[in-house]
Design a protein around this nucleic acid. Structure first.
Lengths: 146, 146
DNA sequence: CATATATAATTCGATATCGAACTAATCAAG
DNA sequence: CTTGATTAGTTCGATATCGAATTATATATG
């Protein structure tokens, strides 16, 4: 029992360390002035579609609105996204990724592919943990709402 | 092949989201003014032993020295650690956790146990991914040094 | 329509992160 | 010893995060 509990803690501990190391790798490959959290936005807009509101994005990334405002301003300043007022509701805005933004995303993904593949080659069963991670994320996400 | 690559990206993506959600849960249960990253320090000093230098700790957590200086100052200000000059080398310092620091650690772990157990109960095979995560972390850690 | 309430986003202030420059102490070479 | 290089830690400045207050717009109610 004690072992099982401490193993659970270790799972989260390892996840934290891996995340930090992965973020550091990513940061090295991003253009100057683009923060890893901002790359996450470009990834979402590029892969899952743009035209979302800042509120949508804040919820998707589980960050406060104020944080999202800041991240979007940085990306807009660099021309990687475009922000428009919602045509039907002037309280809202709509966020679009630009060609420059797509390029940053694509180039960065390409730059990460080598290192990731190299690491993964040595780790047997790495993709096998994906379903477990997905279920865990979904469960934690749901627990947060309630 | 394409699928395999994108699954690798998804593994890291899921890990990032889980880490963020877990950190948010932890933050809610920490005493006011204690940041999750500072809890990590208390955990390390409590579980793995204290009397380490700031340099040691910066390396263990893969953060710059300047970040560690700041974190240690916050913990010391709140009386959760004690910092002394190294008796044999006045350039160095030695960091010790205090009783108050241990109490924060123990209490917070206790407060996290319920939620973690509840989540884990629903996720089949959660602890089974621990060995894979460990190997991944070790591999990435090694890749960073070189 | 007028007013109250709700919602989306920004602003503000406080804290965290961290690269680069700096200070202090030790070590190495002569 | 003395001097140069190295190491540990801090300071400083710039950016990120984010809770609380604020602004602007929209919706609901009388």
């Amino acid at each position: 029992m004690q072992d099982h509990r401490s193993n659970l803690f270790r799972v989260f501990n390892e996840i934290g360390i891996i995340h930090q190391l992965a973020t550091a790798e990513l940061a090295q490959r991003l253009p100057d002035g683009v923060h890893p959290s901002q790359f996450g936005l470009l990834s979402n807009l590029s892969r899952l579609g743009d035209g979302k509101t800042p509120k949508d994005l804040a919820r998707a990334f589980q960050v406060p609105k104020a944080s999202m405002t800041n991240s979007l301003m940085q990306l807009e300043k660099r021309g990687l996204i475009r922000v428009e007022v919602h045509p039907d509701d002037a309280r809202k805005k709509l966020v679009y990724i630009t060609d420059a933004g797509r390029k940053v995303f694509v180039d960065t993904v390409a730059a990460m592919e080598g290192p990731i593949a190299e690491i993964a080659a040595d780790i047997d069963g790495l993709v096998d943990i994906l379903p477990v991670l997905e279920r865990l994320r979904i469960k934690m996400d749901a627990a947060r709402d309630g």
